[in-house]
Design a protein around this nucleic acid. Structure first.
Length: 501
RNA sequence: GGGUCGUUAACUCAGUCGGUAGAGUAUCUGCCUUUUAAGCAGAGAGUCGUUGGUUCGAGCCCAACACGACCCA
């Protein structure tokens, strides 16, 4: 359907022209509301059934018309601003014939300002009786239906502005997201952490194992990569003498999309000198349970029908314990590298030829244990083989002083006591690169400057990453990561503009 | 990358066996000064995702493609 043939759009444009003919600026910006809807709702107690319409103090508010019931010579409407919605009563006798003629050209979706006093209707609803009507912005497109609203998922993601206008719970989710991030800042700042910004564009995409996005700097004539992690830069700051640093920002990974993955996602990473991974488990427990109670009012949250208890202390397993207790694998099998490899084969896990028992064990864990960890669970003692940046355990160098945190079967955080031995670090990164084979996820270049920095001496430290999007999903009961990202990635639609699907 | 499901009016959805494209909301017209999913009466509104095929005839059957959702890798 072409634009000019669409009846509704045509009618709206006609009304806009009619308003212009009546001398109305349909995109005026000369009305400053003195109150918000919230301010008016706060007056509720002062307004009784006996309050005479048109009497009492007057207020001015502005917002979008979201419901409209017109009679011949009077109308009721609801407007919505950022703080809420309130009913407005417009009477021709009160505003006058000319203003009422203008008012009658307004539609659901238009933005307007109103002034007047509060009263209560026969049904007791707090209502502003307008003595002033000021059109502010003409809407040329109809809003989605009032009763069923907007439910089409694709339209909700592509036209998030519409989703936000008509679905209050969506606004609430994104308010909570902002609140969660603010609370994280408060929590860490209050503990002496310093928020920093490190490069999003990096010449060598390090700090994680993932495929990067590639871009190009024209003036320097060089390729750059969007970062897959800020880790190696934050560690440079530890070396520089900042002892507690954190960064909340986007990481980019050139991989598939799912309900748990978006190509750009928000990550908190923080590093603390003279701390180890046990300190970070304590801190994480405290931080996430506190945020949950601040945001949801409780440490017990409901996620997609499952009850999740975030009150500390949280369960702590080594990976072997988790495999034994959750997946029922005998401890003796886990102690024997050959039996571990056999178990992996039995579960049809495909491994690279270079992969050893550490990798096999981790794959078994992901397959058999991960999704069963509903309540928060720290899993420690990750194999050194799969942890190239983590410090080896003093008693058992085959594993690292590392943990991952799982809630509702999903990885929420990853942390470790940092490896600060430049010789071991260089060896492990070189080994990873040498063995990468066809694995494009491993960046083929060693970050020599990072090794050089380590050679100056990095204080013993622990560091952690927390996936903010997944944390927000948990605390807002959202089933998909796209529900907590304002503008999630979608393929371009063929033609925007006429609401086509 | 594979599988399943979906795409019909601005929105939410029906559409039987292949035989004239339907409803509610929204919109328009008339009446209506305390309504709130306002009401009553009437009207208009469609490239049935796209392209091809089968057929006398396709929203419906077949194929490819596009976009999306979910599951799997």
């Amino acid at each position: 359907m072409s634009e000019e043939l669409n009846q509704i759009l045509r009618q709206r444009q006609q009304k806009a022209a009619d308003l212009t003919d009546l001398g109305v600026n349909i995109y005026a910006n000369d009305f400053k509301p003195a109150e918000s809807v919230r301010d008016l709702l706060a007056m509720a107690e002062e307004v009784t059934d006996e309050t005479e319409p048109g009497q009492g103090p007057t207020y001015t508010i502005a917002g979008r018309i979201i419901a409209l019931r017109k009679f011949g010579k009077a109308s009721f409407l609801h407007i919505q601003d950022e703080s809420g919605r309130i009913q407005i009563y417009v009477k021709r006798d009160v505003v006058g014939d000319d203003a009422y003629a203008i008012f009658k050209k307004l539609d659901i979706g238009d933005i307007a300002g109103f002034g007047g006093a509060l009263f209560r209707t026969n049904k007791g609803e707090l209502t502003l009786q307008a003595d002033l009507v000021k059109p502010l912005t003409k809407s040329l497109r109809p809003l989605p239906e009032k009763f069923h609203g907007l439910t089409d998922i694709e339209t909700r993601y592509r036209q998030r502005y519409l989703d936000l206008i008509v679905n209050p719970e969506v606004r609430e989710t994104f308010r909570k997201r902002v609140e969660i991030i603010r609370l994280i800042r408060d929590f860490l700042t209050n503990r002496g952490f310093m928020e920093v910004e490190t490069p999003m564009m990096q010449a060598i995409a390090g700090g994680a194992t993932a495929k990067p996005f590639k871009t190009h700097h024209n003036a320097l004539g060089m390729d750059l990569y969007l970062r897959i992690a800020p880790e190696l830069y934050l560690k440079r700051l530890l070396i520089g003498g900042f002892e507690k640093v954190f960064e909340i920002n986007r990481n980019f990974r050139n991989e598939g999309l799912s309900t748990r993955h978006n190509p750009e996602f928000t990550m908190l990473e923080f590093y603390q000198a003279f701390a180890d991974y046990h300190d970070l488990m304590d801190l994480t427990e405290e931080m996430i349970s506190w945020i949950a109670s601040e945001v949801t009012g409780s440490m017990v949250v409901n996620y997609q029908g499952a009850e999740v208890d975030l009150s500390p202390p949280w369960k702590r397993y080594t990976m072997d314990e988790a495999l034994t207790e959750v997946a029922g694998i005998a401890a003796a099998d886990l102690a024997d590298p050959q039996r571990v490899m056999a178990l992996a084969e039995k579960h049809q896990i495909k491994l690279e030829t270079e992969a050893g028992p550490g990798k096999a064990k981790t794959e078994l864990f992901e397959l058999l244990v991960e999704e069963k960890l509903i309540n928060p669970t720290f899993v420690t003692s990750y194999p050194t083989e799969v942890s190239p940046l983590a410090r080896r355990n003093e008693e058992n160098p085959e594993v690292t002083d590392r943990f991952e945190l799982f809630i509702t079967g999903r990885e929420i955080a990853n942390a470790f006591s940092e490896l600060n031995d430049p010789v071991d670090q260089k060896k492990r990164l070189e080994k990873q690169i040498a063995e990468r084979g066809a694995d494009e996820e491993i960046f083929p270049e060693l970050d020599e400057d990072f090794i050089r920095a380590l050679e100056y001496g990095m204080p013993p430290a622990a560091g952690q990453g927390i996936g903010i999007d997944r944390l927000v999903m948990l605390l807002t009961d959202s089933p998909s990561i796209r529900d907590v990202i304002l503008f999630p990635h979608l393929r371009p639609e063929k033609s925007a503009g006429n609401g086509s699907r």
